[in-house]
Design a protein around this nucleic acid. Structure first.
Lengths: 218, 218
DNA sequence: TGTACATCAGTGAACGCGCGTTCACTGATGTAC
DNA sequence: TGTACATCAGTGAACGCGCGTTCACTGATGTAC
C-alpha cells in the first residue's frame, strides 16, 4: 500500500501533469483520515502523498474544506448504496432485510471511522453545503422508507418513522461505541453484529416473526 | 459570563499570584471546549482567558494533554454522580429509575457536548492514563449494576449485562445523534427524552410493567 | 503529417500566523527567628 | 511585632514548527491550421 503510493508519487514526479490530481488528493485525504482520525490530517500531508506541491490543490478545490465536503458527500452515497445492497440481499420489507441495513451501517462505520465521524459528528468543519446535506438526508430517508415498507407489509399501525428513528438510534449507538473503543473497556469481546441482530426484531415489534440472520464473526 | 471572565482576568493581572490557576485553567479550557468543540481550543486561548502567560500552565500541568485528561476524568465523575442521583430519585431497581439514568446521560451529553465527545470519542487525544480509564469504567459499571438490580428484583433470567449494554447503546446513540444535530436534519422537533423513555421499557423487557415517566419538554 | 500557439495544471518560493514548549528571571508570599 | 530569607508561581521573550494560502512562473498538452 505504502509502496504503491510511493510509486505513484515517483510516477507523478516524472510527468508534469498528474493525470487526475483531483481524485488522487481525495484518495490521499481519505487514507490520511483513516490513519490519523478526522482532525489528524493536513492538506500538506495529502499533497506529499500525491507527490505534488502544496499549491497544486487550489487548481481543483477552493480550499481544504472543499475536499472534506467531497469526501463526506461520497461517504453518504457509499453508505446509501451499501444499505440498499444489504436490504436487497436480506429481503426488502423483512426483519432480515432491515437487520442487514443495520449491519451494513455498522460495517461502514468500522471500515471508515474518520469518514463516519465527519458525516455524523459535529459539523463545525463542514460548511452548510446543499449538495452534502442532501446526500446525507437521502441516505437517512432511505432507511426510513425500508422500515415503512416493513410496516406496510405487516399492517402495523405503528408510525414507521418512529420505529425507523429507534432503529437508527440503536444502530448508530452501537457503531459509535464500537469504533470509539468504548465497548472494549467495559465488555471486551462483545459481538456487535449479534447485538444489532438481536435487538432489531425487538425494536421492530416483531420478536415472534422469526430469527434474525447471524452476524459475521468478529 | 464573558464580562465575568474579563473581570477575573483583570483581577488576576493585579495580583502576581493567581490564587488558583490550576482550577482557573481547567474552567477556561472547559468553556473553550463548549464554545469551539473538542478540537477548537488551544492552551494559549485558555491562558488568555485566565489572564496569564502561556508559560504559566507548565507550573501546574505537564502539558496540554494533562489538562484534557483532568477534564475527562472529572466528566466521568460528574456523569456517575448525575446517574446515581437520577436513579435514586427515579427509584432504584425500577423502570422509572433506569429510564432516569438514560435521561441523565442525555442531559449530560447535551449540556457538555465537547466533554462528552472527549470522554467517549476517539481516544487519540488522550494518553492511556489509569486514573482516567478507571473513572470511565466505574461510570459505566454503575449503570450495569442498576440494571442488574432491576433484573434481580423481577427475577428475570436474562443476563443483566446484556440488557445494560443494549440500553447504553440506545441511550448513547440518542445522545450522539441529538448533540451532533443529526436528528434535526431528518426529524426536526423530535423529543429525545420521550424517545428514550419510550424505548427503555421495551429494552428492559418490561413493556407491560407500567408507563415510563414523561420526558422534560424540549 | 508537421508546426505554431493558447491553455492551464502544477511549480517553487514566500507569506503571515499561531501554536506548544523552554528558559532564565522576578517578585509576592509565608515562615523562622 | 518586626525583619531576613527561601520558596516557587507567574513573567516575558524566544524557539522551531508546520500549517493554509498566494503569487508570478513554466512547460506539457491538445488543437487549429
Amino acid at each position: 500500500m505504502v509502496q504503491a503510493q510511493e510509486r505513484t508519487a515517483v510516477r507523478a514526479k516524472k510527468r508534469f501533469h498528474h493525470g487526475d490530481l483531483r481524485e488522487a488528493l481525495i484518495a490521499a485525504t481519505r487514507d490520511l483520515l483513516i490513519e490519523h482520525g478526522p482532525d489528524g490530517f493536513t492538506l500538506a500531508d495529502a499533497c506529499r502523498r500525491a507527490g505534488v506541491t502544496t499549491a497544486a490543490p487550489y487548481k481543483h478545490f477552493r480550499d481544504k474544506q472543499e475536499i472534506i465536503e467531497e469526501i463526506v458527500a461520497r461517504g453518504f452515497e457509499e453508505l446509501t448504496a451499501a444499505n440498499a445492497k444489504a436490504v436487497a440481499e436480506g429481503g426488502p420489507g423483512t426483519v432480515a432485510g432491515i437487520t442487514a441495513i443495520g449491519l451494513s451501517y455498522l460495517d461502514f462505520a468500522v471500515a471508515q471511522p474518520a469518514v463516519f465521524r465527519l458525516m455524523f459528528g459535529h459539523k463545525s468543519k463542514i460548511r452548510k453545503v446543499n449538495h452534502v446535506d442532501e446526500s446525507g438526508n437521502r441516505c437517512l430517508k432511505s432507511v426510513i422508507e425500508q422500515v415503512a415498507a416493513y410496516s406496510r407489509k405487516h399492517g402495523h399501525t405503528a408510525d414507521a418513522e418512529k420505529i425507523a428513528i429507534r432503529l437508527w438510534t440503536f444502530v448508530h449507538g452501537a457503531s459509535s461505541l464500537e469504533l470509539d473503543g468504548d465497548y472494549e473497556r467495559v465488555a471486551p469481546g462483545l459481538n456487535v453484529h449479534d447485538l444489532i441482530a438481536g435487538v432489531t426484531p425487538k425494536l421492530l415489534g416483531a420478536a415472534s416473526e422469526g430469527r434474525a440472520p447471524r452476524g459475521k464473526k468478529r
